[in-house]
Design a protein around this nucleic acid. Structure first.
Length: 661
DNA sequence: AGGCCTCCTG
DNA sequence: CAGGAGGCCT
């Protein structure tokens, strides 16, 4: 099914006078799509001024700035512009500042961890050495539920902290997952009870070990044993290292690393060192082995208890990777910009079931988020400046991942363009026309003003999502029947909560308009890949194509108008016709496609517009407009100047996000 | 025949 | 921006 446009097909085989010189090497690096590790992607979202303050210089100033120019464009009628472009002073972006949040989230727990670890160690060693006459108290191992969470966090990540801000399942109140922090409910009491039982069992084991231990030592050198055991700092000997290594193994495979093995290996190690001189080494090995084993078993116990007590929370945590908080049905727009298909399609199916998966689509629509979550919405003004700190209304953490995801996606959307507007497999190079651009293009490419509320939260993103899988996470909404319509999307992670629109919305229209800055002749295939939240039908496809047709119509009419006007004004050299951001033509076009002016029109578009203007000018001046089909050659030329659309435009929800921008 | 285009009209 | 007509292309 080749649904490409006629012009697009031409693009592949037809070479035109102007087109020949345009096949140039891409100006930007493809790998720059991945944000630099210490660069927040968010600033890419912002307007130029904001971007200048925050952007990673490596994003702003790709190394490959060299522009290869076709000979017909060099020098000649437009002297100085090339040099102007190259000499344009680049604003300096400050080096990325390490996120304070990172420091907070890393340092403090680390200190806590050490402190707790030391205390726990000491407690365990003392317990071992001094005997087990103590009553079984959970505190001895700091195994309160809270501690269990801390322990889990130490082991695996930051789950507990983030879980406290988990998405609500309904608006009525917090779901089970919203109460991750134990507060003494019945299930928690049950969990505590189980914990106690587990600990009793552990202590029994300890007693048994202690007896064995004393059998070995034969009470020969008890004081020395104690002295050795209480040395918190391990000797630089190998047993410690060995144990630490084994510890890692045992953690992942606890059942295959029984205590005896540690003891034996430790003993062997001691003997290998020739350290047969005495029990102290053996004791130390035993002590370390015990500590290690205790840690492992303790972890297991905590894990199992937690799983038993909060299975839902566990599942919920996993689910959070794929879903986002639910919103009410009014969080979505019912308007359809569709034409004749509007009536049957305009009614989004997801509005029938408030709180069900069907309404989840709203979750990935930041605009809708803003609409329904008033506090969240009102937190940001139109310039993306946070007015208040009312983030908590989101209330949950992977909820907090939601805006973060949006941010990242949208930053990709509009940030990719800064970095590499042409994408990886760019077949069109901007270089040929960039000679005219007096400003750093990469500052203009697809920068969007405002937004970005949640750049801060990205720093604490609880999920280890790379930009790549972030993208796949949101980009590929599964249909209601669970499978994507797009084969290309099948290998990606379906985003369970994303829902397919059955009608095109004003958001989609705005998105299409912005996309027009990049492509004038999108094929239906391309459109399908960029409107992933739309359930495509013939009608939808036709409508989208019609939109672009209308866009083109307006575009060509405007350009032709200005070309004729220039001719009337006595312009002689077509090359002097350049569309800048100050020109009337640009204003007219920008008003049409970018009404809110919240999108930084890519410089490439200015170049295409300039070329279109020149072509019209030349054709009219040559009297070609006498031919009824005199525009067709121009259309062909322009159709070859499409550039890749930033990947971020694929992001589900970006339509709505743009709508509210 | 179907898809997409431009052009024209409302 | 949508609808329709007419044309081109596969």
């Amino acid at each position: 099914m080749d649904s490409r446009t006629g012009f697009e097909q031409d693009r592949d085989c037809v070479t035109l006078g102007h087109g020949q010189g345009l096949k140039l090497e891409p100006c930007f690096q493809t790998d720059s799509l991945l944000p630099s590790p210490n660069a927040s992607p968010m600033p890419q979202f912002l307007s130029r001024t904001m971007a200048a303050k925050n952007l990673d210089p490596t994003i702003l100033f790709p190394s490959s700035q060299a522009v290869a120019l076709p000979h017909e464009y060099k020098g000649g009628a437009c002297p100085g512009e090339e040099a102007q472009a190259l000499a344009f002073p680049r604003s300096r972006a400050p080096a990325p500042v390490p996120c304070a949040g990172d420091q907070l989230s890393n340092q403090q727990p680390r200190e806590q961890l050490c402190d707790q670890h030391l205390r726990a160690k000491r407690a365990r060693v003392e317990s071992i050495i001094q005997g087990m006459n103590l009553p079984p108290t959970p505190q001895a191992f700091d195994m309160s539920p809270e501690a269990a969470f801390r322990h889990e966090r130490e082991r695996g990540g930051e789950m507990p902290q983030e879980s406290k801000r988990k998405p609500r399942v309904s608006q009525q109140g917090e779901g089970a997952a919203g109460r991750v922090t134990p507060t003494g409910g019945t299930s928690h009491a049950k969990g505590c009870q189980q914990l106690k039982e587990q600990l009793c069992f552990l202590e029994q084991q300890l007693r048994w070990l202690q007896e064995k231990f004393y059998q070995v030592c034969d009470s020969e050198d008890a004081p020395q044993i104690q002295e050795e055991s209480e040395k918190v700092q391990p000797l630089p000997g190998k047993p410690e290292d060995r144990l630490n290594k084994d510890s890692a193994t045992a953690t992942s495979n606890p059942h295959k690393a029984p205590l005896r093995r540690h003891v034996l290996s430790g003993l062997e190690e001691a003997e290998d060192r020739g350290d047969t001189g005495g029990l102290p080494s053996v004791v130390r090995v035993l002590s370390q082995a015990l500590k290690h084993e205790l840690a492992v078993v303790t972890s297991q116990v905590v894990d199992s208890v937690l799983k038993a007590v909060w299975p839902k929370a566990d599942r919920h945590i996993q689910k959070q990777h794929h879903s986002l908080p639910m919103l009410g049905p009014d969080a979505r727009r019912e308007y359809s910009a569709g034409g004749k298909c509007r009536k049957p399609l305009a009614k989004p199916s997801h509005m029938n079931a408030p709180g069900s998966l069907g309404s989840l689509q709203a979750e990935v629509l930041p605009g809708a988020l803003r609409k329904s979550l008033g506090s969240y919405a009102s937190s940001f003004n139109s310039k993306g400046v946070k007015k208040s700190s009312q983030v908590p209304s989101m209330g949950y953490s992977l909820g907090s991942a939601t805006p973060a995801q949006h941010s990242q996606l949208l930053s990709q959307l509009l940030g990719y363009s800064q970095h590499n507007p042409w994408g990886s497999d760019s077949h069109e190079s901007p270089s040929a026309l960039e000679r005219d651009c007096p400003e750093p293009l990469n500052l203009h490419w697809g920068t969007i003003k405002l937004r970005s509320s949640t750049v801060r939260q990205q720093q604490h993103h609880p999920l280890p999502l790379s930009p790549a899988n972030m993208e796949s996470l949101v980009l590929l909404p599964a249909g209601r029947d669970g499978h994507s319509e797009l084969p290309a999307a099948n290998d990606r992670v379906p985003f369970a909560s994303t829902h397919m629109q059955e009608a095109l919305t004003p958001g989609h229209l705005k998105k299409a308009k912005l996309m027009f800055f990049f492509t004038r002749y999108p094929s239906s295939t391309l459109l399908k890949t960029y409107f992933l939240d739309v359930q495509f039908s013939r009608c939808i496809t036709s409508q989208l194509i019609k939109w672009f047709s209308n866009f083109r119509e307006f575009y060509y009419i405007q350009v032709e108008k200005f070309a004729r006007q220039a001719l009337l004004e006595g312009v002689v050299d077509a090359c002097t016709l350049q569309v800048s951001r100050d020109s009337e033509l640009f204003r007219a076009l920008n008003m049409h496609y970018n009404k809110g002016n919240d999108f930084e029109v890519p410089g490439r578009f200015l170049e295409v517009a300039s070329l279109t203007l020149q072509e019209f000018f030349s054709a009219v001046r040559a009297g070609k407009d006498a031919d009824p089909s005199w525009k067709k050659p121009i259309y062909k030329i322009i159709s070859k100047l499409d550039s890749d659309i930033p990947e971020g435009f694929k992001a589900a929800g970006c339509s709505q996000e743009l709508l509210h921008s």
